[in-house]
Amino acid sequence: MDALTLIGILTAVSIAVSVVIWLPVALKAKVRRTEMYLSGEPQVNFNLGITEVSWAVRRVFEKLYSVVLNYVQTGVFNDWFAISLPYLLILLALLTVAIIVGGGV
């Protein structure tokens, strides 16, 4: 496979991936927007435009984002340490394992 073919394939694949990811959102995403209620008119359902993708994505992948926003991106200072310091400990532990496996010098 020469470089040009690979370029073509990879670009096409990356666009295809984004389309595939977008499809379930575009098909499923319906937000019920309630206009100011006067008397008796029906509530309007409509497909979201691409500019409002944040709302659509948030609704479709609600579970994923609730986990992320409740456990990772909480905005509380102490929760940062709960993720960052274990990372440091894992680094230290992993490299200690490396020494034991390698037998040191």
Partner: peptide
């Protein structure tokens, strides 16, 4: 790399769309 670029493309379109066609 493919997956993240693909998703990011959607993210960038959010900015391109209003700035060019809003």
């Amino acid at each position: 790399l493919l997956f993240s670029s693909g998703i990011a493309l959607l993210g960038y379109f959010k900015i391109i769309q209003p700035v060019l066609f809003g």
